[in-house]
């Protein structure tokens, strides 16, 4: 099954280094359900830009430390 998005993320690793924050705790901080955090982590859901910034703010890191996009894809030709 192909994932609906090419965006990858480091949320799981960031949760681990931030005191092993649970998905439920992150969901509460961002204002979504735990299932939405699970879907984002698994690449089944691309969050809005606003939610992406909220997640990055929770971890106090820049946006591109949380979300990554593969080089060479989606570039203008």
């Amino acid at each position: 099954m192909s994932k609906p998005t090419r965006i990858t993320n480091s949320i799981r690793a960031l949760r681990f280094v931030h005191g092993e924050m649970t998905q439920a705790q992150l969901a509460e901080r961002v204002g979504v359900t735990r299932q939405t955090i699970i879907a984002i982590e698994q690449g089944r859901y691309s969050p809005s830009l606003e939610m992406a910034f909220q997640i990055a703010r929770v971890f106090r890191v820049p946006l591109d430390e949380v979300f990554q996009y593969p080089d060479g894809e989606g570039e203008l030709r």
Partner: peptide
Amino acid sequence: DSHRRDVR
């Protein structure tokens, strides 16, 4: 966990 409908 929650009965709230979120953005997703």
